[in-house]
């Protein structure tokens, strides 16, 4: 179960990362197209921001699990482990509530975007599939956050600190130079 879960989250992250890479490439190509050939890629403005939005929210789902949100970290220096555990549960529950309400409202936004017929600027691609993908990412975030709360409550090593800013652990840093 745990393994399957980890694998799913990794897969989500890979997809989000590829989308992110694709957006980078899109902007570079559009800039080249404009300077080199006076033909920017149509809708590069809308497509890049919308696809990046999808990547960000799918990344948000993985953050819900990995605890790489930016936080103030004084409590672990002050309180005992059991108290710290309950503080963690409190914090993650608020994250869960926020994410859930956001997902609920985003579903409404998806419905209203679908009904409104709003499109991109140049190619007139409907916007609703992007909003739907973003909503899906939020649903993913609810699941990952819930899973994390269960882990905090049940595991003794709940306070293992992953590097909360760069998101990378020491062992991932390359030493080949």
């Amino acid at each position: 179960m745990n393994k399957l879960f980890d694998k799913t989250i990794s897969a989500i992250e890979v997809v989000a990362a590829i989308l992110f890479g694709a957006v980078t490439l899109l902007i570079v190509l559009s800039a080249i197209g404009r300077y080199g050939f006076a033909t920017p890629i149509p809708d590069s403005f809308d497509l890049s921001r919308l696809v990046l939005g999808v990547a960000i929210v799918w990344g948000f789902a993985s953050l819900g699990f990995r605890d790489s949100h930016i936080k103030v970290s004084i409590t672990s220096h002050i309180f005992s482990k059991p108290v710290t555990r309950w503080i963690e549960v409190f914090a993650w529950t608020l994250l869960l509530i926020f994410t859930s309400v956001l997902a609920w409202k985003m579903f409404g936004k998806f419905l209203s975007t679908h009904a409104s017929g709003e499109t991109t600027f140049d190619l007139r691609i409907p916007l609703w599939p992007f909003v739907f993908a973003i909503w899906l990412g939020l649903v993913g975030a609810i699941i990952t956050t819930l899973y994390r709360i269960i882990q905090i409550m049940t595991r003794s090593d709940f306070c293992i600190i992953e590097n909360s800013i760069t998101g990378s652990r020491d062992d991932e840093v390359q030493n080949d130079v």
Partner: peptide, 14 residues
Amino acid sequence: ISWTNPGYNAGRFP
């Protein structure tokens, strides 16, 4: 009350 530019939402107010 809002001061809205319908043109900002392409395709929405045909």
